[in-house]
Structure formats: structure tokens, C-alpha cells
Design a binder for these strands. Sequence first.
DNA 1: TTGACATATGCCGATAACGGAATATAGAGT
DNA 2: ACTCTATATTCCGTTATCGGCATATGTCAA
Lengths: 113, 113
Amino acid sequence: MARSSTTSDVFNALGDANRRDVLDTLITGEKSVGAIVQRLSMSQPQVSKHLRVLRAVGLVGCHADGRRRLYRLESARLSPMRDWLAKYEQAVNDRLDRVDDYLKELQQQGEGQ
Amino acid sequence: MARSSTTSDVFNALGDANRRDVLDTLITGEKSVGAIVQRLSMSQPQVSKHLRVLRAVGLVGCHADGRRRLYRLESARLSPMRDWLAKYEQAVNDRLDRVDDYLKELQQQGEGQ
DNA sequence: TTGACATATGCCGATAACGGAATATAGAGT
DNA sequence: ACTCTATATTCCGTTATCGGCATATGTCAA
């Protein structure tokens, strides 16, 4: 078994820096393919392909506007990453709490003497 | 130019689900390679290779303990992902704020009449 | 030193992914 | 119908990555 495909795993889809750049472009609002091509200096097919992958994992949506297509960010789909990160925050906090408890215990023992 | 290597880009390193699983294993504290192999059902070389990648990007550290090697999580190295995500939270909030301002403006105009 | 255990590394074949170039599709205007 | 323009898709060559297997390295214990 290899890596799950970039079209099915949000993490893998975001493993490519160019794709992150494309997504960053959409932070300020929806944009046409041409607008993205111009901002980043990437070829048009390249941008279209990255958008296709991003759409496959649901990170962007699009709708037609005349002969253009406007892509918009679907920030809700970032939750897998948010949740995954949250596990780590939680874990680190728990471990700090345990250290804290230990220190308090030491302190109480000191007071008892 | 292709993707930046999995040994130099945290995002790409975490694009592999097995590697995320290995990292998850370390949340509760440092562990030997053997312990990880046993928890997940992966081959030993496979785990060692994934740990090598994780070490290359700084997500884990290790120190020798007899004939074993104990790996520990370096959660600080997750900040690239945290920062990147934060941009999106911020952006979404800003856009909501703007909508909010717009609604208030409409409301004031209504009151003026 | 020899042997058992723990981990790392090297080699291999298969597959996925990227970018470039050319081409196809589709809408708008004449 | 023809022609721009905007975007998507296909084909292709190159490279990265993954897992398996075998093997090397290193460490303890007798």
C-alpha cells in the first residue's frame, strides 16, 4: 500500500507547495483561473490541474461565470487538518498538566515535613 | 520543478497517512522503534524509514538507550502547519467582519429614513 | 568472540505525481 | 458559421516515493 492519492487525502493534496499557493490565492475571495495564473506565475494548464485536485478533495468549489470559472475556497474542508493538529495541542497540554500535578505533589510533600 | 521533497517539507512529509500514524504514536510520549512496530502493524524497516523522514523535517528527535533508540515528538515543528491554517481562520473571520459591517451599514441607513 | 536482539540501510520493482506542450471543449460576440 | 477567449484534458517523459526483502551496523550478555 502506498500513499493515498492526492485526490482523496487532504493532507497529501496540500503536500504540494504550488497547490498551497493556489489555495492561498483564494483566501481573499473567489477568483477565475486566469486571475490565479496571473498572480502566481504558473502555466494555465498547471493551475487548472491543481484546481482539479483541490476540487476533488473538496477544498475548493467552482461555478461558471460566462466563459470563465470562478473558484472559491471551501475552508470547512480544512477541518481534518485542524482536528489532527488539535490532538497534538491537547496531548501536549495533558502532559504539561501531568508535570504540573507532579510539581504540586512535590510541593505538598515539602509542606508536610 | 516538482514537489519539494518529503524530507524538506513538513506538509509533504505529513502527506503520508502511515507517517501520520507513526507520529500519532508518539503523542503519549517517547517510544522505541519496536514499540511503534508493534502498535501499528508495520514492518520494522518501514517504520525506521518513516522515522528517518520525520527526523529529517525535525518532527521527531531521538536518542540512544542501550540497543534501542527512543523517538520523541518535536511538536514545535508543527508550527508551519499551524501558521498556515491560522491564515485561513483569520481570512474567514475578516470576511465575516466585512459582511457584519455591511449589515450594520444597511441597518443604519434604514434607521435614517 | 560469538550469538541474539534492535535498528538502520541498500537495492529493487511498481506506482503516483509533476510539468510541458499540444489539443479539445465551451461560451460570447460578429 | 467563424473566431476570439477562457478553461479543461490528454499525452508524454522524468522524477519521487513507497514497501518488501535482504543485509549491514551496533549493542548487550555470556
